[in-house]
């Protein structure tokens, strides 16, 4: 298992100009590492649908690399999306799954078959152009450059340590973050989309 923050540290040098979106509990740490928040976009809003929104973004911006840090609980709610993504073959899409084997935000209950699912194998079977699987930080770090040079759609499954939230919602630490609409407006401005 790898800390989610270490995943982002490993990814950061290889980001380039990629547009980055995150979902799930672990994804919130990306804000601590991003050095280009104008290209960070929030696409969440319905259970499991960030994956599909990222696909739409990749199809609409074929000249931009789109990186989605997904979560396994989210992906399981919209698993057919991997077939949809593979079918459209977006060469610019990098689908990175942070698999903490649980619903960390609701107290750490395990997702179905939490330790028994090989998500990279599922993505490979669905037809992604390249798939990877990691549970060792050093291997991940040395492979990240190669991953970002691949032609997509690429799927990367990473086992991460859960950071379980047990406090009532109102008592949890509030991390500063921009709202969805603000991130979209900024991204469009950055890309010259009216």
């Amino acid at each position: 298992m790898i800390d989610a923050s270490d995943v982002f540290e490993a990814f950061k040098p290889h980001r380039g100009d990629a547009i980055v979106s995150t979902t799930g509990t672990a994804g919130r740490y990306w804000n601590d590492f991003s050095e280009n928040e104008r290209r960070d976009v929030s696409l969440g809003g319905a259970m499991g649908q960030t994956t599909s929104a990222a696909l739409g973004l990749a199809l609409g911006l074929p000249d931009e690399k789109i990186v989605l840090f997904d979560a396994e609980g989210s992906l399981l709610m919209n698993l057919g999306a991997i077939a949809s993504i593979a079918g459209m073959k977006p060469a610019n899409f990098y689908h990175i799954l942070l698999d903490n084997e649980c619903y960390a935000t609701t107290g750490g209950q395990p997702v179905p078959n939490a330790q028994g699912i090989d998500y990279a194998m599922m993505a490979k079977g669905a037809g992604y152009a390249a798939t990877y699987s990691f549970d060792d930080l050093e291997e991940l770090s040395t492979s990240m450059g190669e991953i970002m040079d691949e032609t997509g759609p690429v799927f990367v499954s990473i086992k991460v340590n859960p950071e379980v939230q047990n406090l009532p919602i109102g008592l949890r630490e509030r991390r500063p973050s921009r709202g969805r609409a603000e991130t979209i407006d900024t991204l469009r401005e950055e890309l010259g989309i009216s």
Binding site: S52, G56, L59, G60, N78, A81, L187, R188
Partner: peptide, 20 residues
């Protein structure tokens, strides 16, 4: 853009809209 289940369609459309 074919999707696997209708729920995906709205998210995909949203992403396309963000892309202009």
């Amino acid at each position: 853009v074919p999707v696997s289940r209708e729920g995906e369609a709205w998210g995909t459309a949203f992403g396309l809209n963000v892309a202009g």
